[in-house]
């Protein structure tokens, strides 16, 4: 069962076409990672799925319905996005920012209710940011900010979560914590997770489904075992990689690599 279907999509920024006649599906209830070199269209693809970027041709379907034709607030009840790092206005506190995640569930001028607070508290809890919920976001470190924005996306309480490089700015421990959190959300709450990941070992360890992009096109997709092969990595990333098995998860991981010979 697919939750997203991208059908013959062409899009890009201004006159620059980034992806052309693109076709892809994203499975429901699974973790999908999009990997590829810089500038391959990963973020563009994620922005297309979240209707942040309008498409020139084609259609993006969510559960069979055109996402650009749907009421945008109804889309927001199903789908949240963690964008790449962004600044918050001066003085905005962590708790206030996370509260905005409840916006799609509110009528104009409706205040937060018990159910909203439960969602906010839960998001604060699972992202481990309880210690600084009353501080201004602008005063936090990069890693703390990243977790706060993630908490905001989680407070939106959607069944689909899209993340643009969620582990950036985080140290090794928090990278694992965030990825474990996403995995448990997927397993226990049946959330569909789609993320752009820079670290393909992380992608391999935590995804059910991988999509390798290059120059705006899919070069390989499928289970990590299908994508994490020497020939695919050589084609997509232009490196010679040594692949072995992760001792913790038995998934394929790169132990080292060099530039393509």
């Amino acid at each position: 069962m697919d939750i997203f279907e991208v059908r013959d999509v062409t899009t890009g920024y201004d006159k620059k076409v980034v992806i052309e006649n693109f076709n892809m599906t994203i499975p429901k209830g699974q973790i999908t990672s999009i990997v590829g070199p810089n500038g391959c269209g990963k973020t563009t693809l994620l922005h297309t799925l979240t209707r942040v970027l309008k498409i020139k041709y084609g259609a993006v379907l969510m559960d069979g319905k055109d996402i650009f034709a749907m009421n945008t607030k109804n889309v927001a009840k199903r789908l949240s996005l963690l964008p790449q790092m962004s600044n918050a206005p001066d003085g905005l506190t962590v708790r206030e920012l996370i509260g905005y995640g409840r916006h799609p569930h509110k009528k104009p001028f409706e205040g937060l209710n018990q159910w909203d607070y439960e969602n906010i508290d839960w998001a604060v809890d699972v992202t481990g940011i309880k210690a600084f919920t009353d501080r201004p976001v602008s005063e936090l470190s990069g890693g703390q900010k990243q977790r706060v924005w993630l908490a905001m996306a989680l407070a939106q309480n959607t069944d689909i979560i899209l993340l643009d490089e969620p582990t950036t700015y985080l140290d090794m421990k928090f990278q694992m914590e965030i990825l474990n959190l996403l995995k448990s959300l997927n397993e226990t709450a049946d959330k569909t997770i789609v993320m752009v990941l820079h670290d393909i070992n992380h992608a391999s360890r935590f995804s059910d489904h991988m999509i390798a992009l290059k120059e705006g096109g899919i070069r390989k997709l499928g289970k990590p075992e299908t994508v994490m092969t020497e020939s695919v990595l050589k084609e997509v990333f232009e490196v010679d990689a040594v692949i072995s098995e992760c001792p913790f998860t038995s998934r394929p991981i790169i132990t080292s690599y060099q530039l393509k010979g």
Partner: peptide, 10 residues
């Protein structure tokens, strides 16, 4: 806040 967030908040 930022444009991407605004759009994803509906």
């Amino acid at each position: 806040l930022n444009e991407e967030t605004a759009i994803s908040l509906g």
